[in-house]
Amino acid sequence: MSAGPYKVCLLGDFGVGKTSLVARFVRSTFAAKYLTTVGVKVDSKEVSRPGRDPVKLVLWDIAGSNALDGVSASYLRGAAAVLLVADGTREATLAAALDLLMQARTLLPSAAAVLAVNKFDLVERWEVGPPTLAQLRRSLPVIETSAATGIGVEQAFAAIVAGLVP
């Protein structure tokens, strides 16, 4: 018996690694080649919790964009949580993720939100600095992730689960 299912939408600018994060989380795979997502790809995974029922997450990997259009907004219907994804090597994608969060909040005022700042394996090229993330952590859970190495990926989805199921 599992709790949920909970619909979790991944939002973020193009090329930040949303599809890669899902692939790492669901299938433990990583493809270095960038392939644009068009529309949405839906996957699911049960997240086990020590001593408690697992939680089923249905992950909506939505085409990358720095703003919600009508189609993207339609994908959010019924979502219990959003995983915002930014690329640490491109600071503009962090601003985009925060803009998307603001827009998503108008549609999903009570949805849980977690920010994954991806490409942690390239941290030496990051434009996003630690002080910025330290400040953001006052507002929402922020996890540095790497879909390439897997660092932080489980934690990001665990943070989602924590936001969904107290």
Partner: peptide, 27 residues
């Protein structure tokens, strides 16, 4: 898998979900 698409969505209203990638990779 199709049922997962309608989590949290009322089934008594018309809904349209464009460009959904299925497990066979087809949209």
């Amino acid at each position: 898998a199709l049922r997962d698409l309608f989590i949290g969505i009322e089934l008594d209203q018309e809904q349209a979900i464009p460009f959904v990638e299925l497990t066979n990779g087809r949209s």
